[in-house]
Design a protein around this nucleic acid. Structure first.
Length: 125
DNA sequence: GGCATGACATTGC
DNA sequence: AGCAATGCCATGC
């Protein structure tokens, strides 16, 4: 397993894991201080058009971002491709995500973050 | 299998 | 820049 992402994609395509489980594992690969767009995650998993389903998978996370496997997921490192944060209108999750990002050094200017600067460059595989 | 539901992306105003 | 209309597809009923 040279690259964790490769294993995830393999498990997904082989039908060993569900889509949302693949999303959870992929998001865990994002290092602190970096972010990825929903579409980026979908692309990594081999389904470029399933951006919306990435959001759906994250929405299915339990309290505290705990996935079905019991492990936490750094869901706050996933933003919209234009650099805005989803659910900003949400009194709970919106501010929480912004605060978590800021804690890792990801600053937002005018409600947006610079994707050119903070987007994670995944290892090729 | 059909139908509704979305933490999105893209395009066209 | 901002907004509406469309396309998308995993999940659950």
């Amino acid at each position: 397993m040279a690259h964790p992402l490769r294993d995830i994609v393999d498990d997904l395509t082989a039908g060993r894991i569900r889509w949302r489980a693949a999303v959870a594992r992929a998001v865990r690969c994002i290092p602190p201080g970096k972010v990825l767009g929903y579409g980026h995650v979908a692309t990594l998993l081999g389904n470029p058009r399933a951006a919306r389903q990435v959001g759906y998978a994250l929405a299915a996370l339990g309290e505290g971002g705990i996935a079905a496997d019991g492990e936490p997921v750094p869901w706050w490192r996933v933003t919209r491709s234009d650099g805005t944060v989803a659910m900003q209108g949400d009194v709970d999750r919106g501010p929480t995500q912004v605060a978590a990002l800021k804690h890792e050094g990801v600053v937002l200017k005018h409600g947006k973050l610079d994707m050119r600067l903070f987007r994670w460059d995944p290892p090729a595989f």
